[in-house]
Design a protein around this nucleic acid. Sequence first.
DNA 1: TTTATCATGTAGCCATGGCAACAATTAATA
DNA 2: TATTAATTGTTGCCATGGCTACATGATAAA
Lengths: 148, 148
Amino acid sequence: MTKAGRAGTLPSEPAQARRFGRVRDAQATALLEDYVELIADLLADAGEARLVDIARRMGVAHPTAAKTINRLKRQGLAMSEPYRGVFLTEAGARMAERARVRHRLVVRLLETLGVPSEVAEADAEGMEHYISDVTERVFTQFVGRKGV
Amino acid sequence: MTKAGRAGTLPSEPAQARRFGRVRDAQATALLEDYVELIADLLADAGEARLVDIARRMGVAHPTAAKTINRLKRQGLAMSEPYRGVFLTEAGARMAERARVRHRLVVRLLETLGVPSEVAEADAEGMEHYISDVTERVFTQFVGRKGV
DNA sequence: TTTATCATGTAGCCATGGCAACAATTAATA
DNA sequence: TATTAATTGTTGCCATGGCTACATGATAAA
């Protein structure tokens, strides 16, 4: 049997493989982005980022947060002394800032389109990691044009 | 130290924890959605969904695809006989259809906003799994209004 | 200052989602 | 038909990201 139904739906094999590869890459960094973003917010808002607070806000048990923070440290994004709060390195702070900008942008885009703020915040949390630079620019232009 | 910098950036602890929980849930099903969507496309387009093709299009080694397909089977989304192609169950077909609709919608939204098709396709692949029903409706209305 | 509480660290378990290497089966071709 | 090639299955490895349970360090209260 060859070519039946909605033929032409499929992109070329290499193109599709590349796309899924990109998604996997984004997925790999998504959690790290969420963590550095949260740490930056906690530092800005409370002056410190403690493990318990990070864990509670992420909605995970504290060893889970500890493991991820160790990964952040291994990757040179965060640093901390034993039994003390967590801080961001230069690289971590940069990643956090980029993440924050994209996050705010996605929220604003959704709100501009008419999505209620609560929902916009929730959906943005997932979407923000998959926005390419090109799309980010388009979004920026759109929300700018629309004012909001 | 209390309340410094960009205070008020942080949502309430339970709200934030809920959001991240939702993201984790979405992440857990994202890969399954991609697989059933691809299988549906292959079935519609080529009449069969073979392991090698699935693996190549996902950009992974075949044992990886095989494992995920076994997971689909365990979850009642797919079925297959040994050394034969893969098919979807009722539930699997339904999930594929929902995924396909959301995928097309996100692509159309991005294109409507001015994102080039190639980029739109790529970004949609990641974004589509994190769109809530509310946001889906807003998107539908928006692309409808804009014609395209 | 002791003691209790709270925070952090560590160990070990599980499932997922990658991989390579090898076995078994099916399909193609000589 | 016999042999070769391609496809599928299986095994075992690794890292990630959850968890519980327990050990240790720091802080608050008695």
